[in-house]
Design a protein around this nucleic acid. Structure first.
Length: 195
DNA sequence: CCAGACGTTGTT
DNA sequence: GTCTGG
DNA sequence: CCAGACGTTGTT
DNA sequence: GTCTGG
């Protein structure tokens, strides 16, 4: 899940939305994929670019997600429970497995154009935390990124809070419905390829 | 990053 | 070769 | 010692 | 690569 997301918003608006001190650094593409540099916000309006995924020695692929339910039990994550961040996004992509094909969905909360995913950021890398899905999108996938309400973001980011005091934020988004737009199957417009 | 897929209709 | 998805 | 896990996701 | 369990 959540192996791709979008941040399609003007730096100016991102700065306002997340209370940044200055305009955030910019990357030239809106679609973010594993290993890409992307914007993360830490406490105090500190916005930096980090690469998506922690490198692990046992796999060539980076570790891009962390399960919220077990985060504080994993040796890989436990040292970093206070290195919390939020990851600005305007939507994320999820593939629903259908009878015949996979259907790509673009998913976002109904009440926020630009929202915050909960994450950890360490050594210029970040991961996105996942939780059980909200009811409206459970048919698409059994996980979703943790999406924070704006009023919870400062608490989540507060480095003075122990993880145990902020872990309750790591649940499916329930402030508004989740909207999912399913990408239409591509039109096989190959006319007379076989004529 | 990198392994694995890349196509699956409806019988003109 | 390019796209997909974790 | 040494095989297997180690995160995830999705599920052969 | 390093840790864990048998």
């Amino acid at each position: 899940m959540c192996a791709r997301y979008e941040l399609n918003e003007q730096p100016r608006n991102i700065a306002v939305r997340f209370g940044l001190d200055a305009l955030p650094p910019v990357v030239n593409r809106a679609i973010i994929r594993p290993t890409d540099q992307a914007l993360v916000v830490r406490s105090g309006g500190d916005a930096v670019l980090c690469g998506w995924g922690f490198d692990v020695t046992w796999d060539s692929k980076p570790l891009i997600n962390g399960r919220a339910e077990t985060l504080d039990q994993k040796p890989t994550f436990r040292p970093y429970l206070e290195n919390r961040c939020v990851v600005p996004a305007t939507g994320y992509f999820e593939w629903r497995t259908g009878e015949r094909a996979k259907h790509k969905n673009f998913i976002r909360p109904a009440d926020q154009a630009t929202y915050a995913m909960a994450g950890l950021a360490v050594n210029n890398r970040f991961i996105v935390l996942t939780c059980a899905p909200a009811p409206g999108i459970a048919h698409i996938h059994n996980r979703m990124p943790v999406i924070l309400s704006p009023d919870c973001e400062p608490d989540w980011l507060d480095p003075g809070q122990p993880f145990s005091a902020v872990a309750h934020h790591l649940v499916a988004y329930d402030r508004a419905p989740m909207l999912a737009e399913e990408e239409q199957p591509p039109v096989a417009d190959q006319g007379d390829l076989f004529h």
